[in-house]
Each structure stands twice: as C-alpha cells, then as structure tokens.
Amino acid sequence: MPLMKSRIPLLIIEGRLVLTTALVCKKLRLHVPFHEFVIDTGSNFSFLSYKDVLQLQIPMKNRRSMGRIQFGGSDFDKTELPPINLLMLKENKTDHINIKVILGALLTKKTSERKRKIAETLPSILGMDFLSINNFSLHIYPHEKIAYLSQE
C-alpha cells in the first residue's frame, strides 16, 4: 500500500506563496499561534525577517552573528537563533505537522528612515534549505490559484 502524502495548503497573496504556521520555542519563550512565511525557491536560507523579529519581540542581545546577507536590496546581519518548532495545519484543518527548523534572524542597523522602513516591510522566508531538509515538494497551479507542499 503506498504511503499517503501529507498536504500543507499555501495561500497565494500578491503573487507570493504564503505558508502559515504556529511557532514554539521554549528558549525564546515563543508560543505564537500565527506566523507567515513566504516560500521562496530563489533563497538558499530560511530566516525570520526584521519585521517579524520586532513583532515576535525576540530578544536579540548577545546572539551570534552568522555574517551579512543581502535581501530585498538591503544589507542585514544574519543572527543565529535556537531551533524553532513550526506547526502547520494539513489540508483537512484538523491534523498538523510539527517540524523543528533552524532559522536565522535578520537585523538591520539602518539609520535612514527610508531604508529602515524598507527593512520593516520584508517578509520571513522559507527557502530551498527548508524544502530539501524536510523532504517537501512544492506544487503550484497558478491558474487555479492552488498551491501546497506535500511530504512523504
């Protein structure tokens, strides 16, 4: 009997593929019911955006830098975070998948108002590393406005 694949529905918002999850991390005291990630196959990293670091109020003092990263035309410090559990609802909206992921956090030291505002508007990203490590395949039917992740 073939294994059933789990489907995780995605929303298509302004042409972007959006995955919604709950976030849990004891070390960061995160117990958050809703978070949005953009699935970006053009990114080889997964990270929480500067906006979402602010919204989730993650304490960022004394965290290890993982170097600089260019994103959305801006330059950010990529900072290490402890592993975070992502909880995703399956298609039936009853069952869920719980996956532990390593995410960086993007911080900006931009001082100009304009550049800081741009940094505040960029989304959190799940990139190819997330899809590959967790054995997800990505299915998109733009004409029907249907997209989902599936996992063996």
Partner: peptide, 8 residues
C-alpha cells in the same frame, strides 16, 4: 497544541 492550532 490545541490552543495554538485553533487560533491558527
């Protein structure tokens, strides 16, 4: 995680 998932 029932509390989280119902709000999700």
């Amino acid at each position: 995680y029932a509390d989280l998932l119902s709000i999700l």
